[in-house]
Design a protein around this nucleic acid. Structure first.
Lengths: 282, 282
DNA sequence: CGATCGTTTGACGGTGCTCAATCACCGTGG
DNA sequence: CCACGGTGATTGAGCACCGTCAAACGATCG
């Protein structure tokens, strides 16, 4: 618990060099937020009037706590977060990893308090919109309403991806699916889909995959041994994305497509090879 | 594949005795939908003008297919659904079970097509709102906008509950958590939290829990043997909700609170008893 | 450079997955 | 009414993947 966060409250003075709003929060205009969310600049010019809070967090700081009062929802501007739920015994269940353009804390609007917490994985920035302002603001600015709906819909989809990963498959396959997910997100951002830098710890990954801490390490080693990836600490390079994707789809029994076109440093199909247990029977 | 569904299309003639809209769909008024969603009747009277499609489905019918074009989002009026994603090998991953007042298909608005399918678990009815109408309608009728945000927020929360269940715990515990979830939902609906009738098959439960078909049966038997529940086919009676809830929270090792107050038909703590493997280390 | 944390790897034991047989429950047809 | 196939649920046996415990290794920071 070496949190270096500056408290939880929304109304908090934050070290900031941008202009301040009445709340002591750095503020930008709504148009900035809409631009971030990829809104086509229709009525953007008219939205400069609306101030929007902006908040910065250091790595490891928590944006809002589980059970905390729902003060605002946030849009990630730069950096990345994990959303987690902590069990009574202290076990942290990771529900997802969020990046630029994604929305945080929306699951709180139906309850008044946050069912999950959000923690920054690196130095980050977010826009915040107070919950009480959402409805009126969305009514005033249709573009915001649209943007919000879209972002939440995307969020809903990504929450579903946990199940895809945790669906009873071998641990190696879970990790492979996770890496493919990351790779696709990278590509969606216009970045290289082969070079990944993992912002989260092995334990975070383990929680997300629903396997043990140590098993993640073993699976990384296995994937590297098969020749799918090259791993150096948190740097991951995907050597053969297509074969990795194929393996991530593997279910059980001997994978139906050995897919050994050309260079296979280590034959993936062997004892303890891909897909020994894999999938639950339908 | 003995689907008795009446095709997928939204613009389909449906056997219906209610008034028809221009689309050949039975139609009700928007105020009905808002009332279903628990909106306080502020401007309800003025919303009678807006027609809303209503659709009926038989048990086993699919409301919309995975990959299908996103035509509308739906609100469950009566009955229940499962939302699923089907892998290439035919494995059905269940993402959640939905009941009255919940929203279906919203994750499609950000993509134009449905990332998941929805199948009726029993004879059911839904209200449908075309995707293209959502934004304009929400702007015209603020109450709808609010209702929609709330419903989606709830949906987001329930998607997170999959992780709670699938988080690496013993299979018995997963089932216990699932039953507790159902029980709480029953209570929220004003029904008895002890008497459950499971609308879904064992395989559906297995998929939702992330365990094998057979393991669900074994876990049911175990829970019954511990004296937590009494099971007869799809009828489940919870005999001791508090102890069941306690067990559902169990992690690993010998559960820290034996909780043997009084009557314990079969001592839950025994070899192969509760919480042998349980939880992944934090 | 030492302390602390995160990561890797090893060995062991157990739970749950696979396979498969049996049973219970229905709707059909003889 | 009872035989009959079909679906879904239960139970059993065997084996191996992975969770636990533990120790060694590496990285990062003060």
């Amino acid at each position: 618990m070496t949190e270096s966060n500056q408290a939880t409250g929304f109304n908090r003075s934050v070290k900031e060099d941008a202009p301040r709003g009445p709340e002591g929060l750095a503020s930008s205009s709504l148009s900035d937020l809409l631009r971030l969310m990829g809104a086509d600049g229709a009525d953007l010019a008219q939205t400069d009037a609306y101030p929007v809070a902006m908040r910065r967090l250091r790595a490891g700081a928590t944006l809002f706590h589980e059970g905390g009062e729902a003060e605002a929802i946030y849009f990630v501007s730069v950096g990345s977060f994990k959303s987690i739920r902590t069990a009574e015994d202290g076990y942290e269940q990771v529900l997802g990893f969020l990046r630029r353009g994604e929305v945080l804390g929306f699951d709180a609007v139906c309850m008044g308090q946050h069912p999950t917490a959000a923690v920054a994985l690196e130095d980050s920035r977010v826009y915040g919109v107070r919950v009480q302002d959402i409805f009126t603001l969305a009514q005033r600015v249709p573009t915001l309403d649209r943007v919000l709906h879209l972002a939440v819909s995307r969020q809903l989809t990504s929450r579903g991806e946990i199940a895809d990963v945790m669906a009873a498959v071998a641990a190696d396959v879970r990790l492979a699916r996770f890496l493919v997910q990351l790779s696709e997100r990278m590509q969606a951002c216009g970045q290289s889909p082969r070079r990944l830098y993992l912002r989260m710890s092995r334990s975070d990954i383990a929680s997300y995959l629903g396997v043990a801490h140590a098993t993640v390490s073993r699976s990384f080693s296995a994937l590297a041994a098969w020749g799918y990836v090259q791993v150096s600490n948190r740097d991951v390079e995907i050597l053969d994305l297509e074969r990795l994707r194929g393996f991530s789809r593997s279910t059980r029994g001997l994978m139906d497509e050995p897919a050994r076109h050309a260079a296979a440093p280590r034959q993936p199909v062997a004892r303890n090879g891909p897909g020994s247990v894999g999938r639950i029977t339908a």
